[in-house]
């Protein structure tokens, strides 16, 4: 419990900064919606001017962008991108931070098992992400209510929004696994940006090429907003893949972290 609280405290500042940034970004983008919807035909014309591959890569669908949920899914894809970076940061730093700052000696000569340490750290990251997500969700909902003139399906709105957390969990698990295998990571942020953007670009390529197999590679496509709106449910295949990746990454992280030698500074 003490490690958990200590970790939670150490994430406090970063959680606040991420939550506020994501919330402000959401407010800004969503407040553009009224001008989008009132000039629907004009907007559609402008968008038609862009080549189709570009529109696809950025997830713009001309028919949907002028209804609220369509517009929201577009904005949401950037929120997920931010969330993924935050989650990856937390995942990577779970182990590598102690090694980089050389505090592993302090922590690991205490009467505490390694799996307890990792569990506490994972829960602290999860709680920080959940706090960020709740702040996001509340902000997004309030903004949505005030900008959307027409009524929108609230259930679908939440179904889309909570996928932020799912994507974050995947990236956090991958981050933990990387740091459990590699150990010392000099720059957390550059590694997490690198990994997250690689998957994001794969996602863009997938959308452009409409390649079905590529969809399995990038977590950004597991919870497709278009699919959710159309079917009012998640694609079960990807839910299973999601669970598989998370469980395997976390289990492997424990295995690697348990075996790891903590070298002298």
């Amino acid at each position: 419990m003490n490690v958990f609280l200590h970790e939670l405290k150490s994430y406090r500042k970063s959680t606040i900064v991420w939550a506020i940034s994501i919330a402000l970004m959401t407010i800004f983008f969503l407040s553009l919606y009224p001008s989008f919807s009132s000039n629907a035909s004009l907007v559609k014309k402008i968008l038609e001017g862009y080549p189709e591959p570009v529109r696809k890569a950025f997830g713009i669908s001309i028919d949907d962008i002028t209804n609220f949920l369509g517009f929201y899914s577009y904005v949401f894809s950037y929120v997920v991108l931010c969330g993924a970076i935050q989650a990856m940061n937390y995942g990577i730093s779970a182990i590598s931070k102690e090694i980089k700052l050389k505090t592993a000696d302090f922590l690991m000569t205490k009467p505490v098992r390694r799996d307890e340490i990792l569990t506490s750290k994972l829960f602290a990251s999860l709680i920080s992400l959940i706090i960020t997500d709740i702040i996001y969700l509340v902000t997004a909902f309030i903004t949505a209510e005030s900008v959307a003139k027409e009524s929108f399906n609230i259930k679908l709105f939440f179904m889309i929004s909570v996928t932020l957390f799912f994507v974050e969990v995947i990236f956090m698990s991958i981050g933990v696994l990387i740091s459990a295998v590699v150990g010392k990571i000099k720059s957390t942020i550059s590694l997490s940006l690198g990994v997250v953007f690689t998957f994001y670009i794969i996602g863009m390529l997938q959308a452009t090429l409409n390649d079905k197999t590529m969809k399995y590679i990038t977590p950004f496509k597991y919870f497709d907003a278009g699919y959710i709106i159309k079917n009012s449910s998640y694609d079960m295949t990807f839910v299973i893949i999601f669970l598989f990746i998370v469980i395997v990454s976390i289990l492997l992280s424990y295995v690697f972290f348990f075996k790891r030698d903590i070298y002298a500074v």
């Binding site: 150490s10 050389k102 009467p111 098992r113």
Partner: peptide, 20 residues
């Protein structure tokens, strides 16, 4: 029995690093 025996061990390394 690492975690158990560490209850009664005090360790001082040559170079100390703590959360700054």
């Amino acid at each position: 029995y690492g975690p158990e025996i560490k209850k009664d061990i005090g360790y001082l390394p040559s170079e100390v690093f703590y959360y700054d």
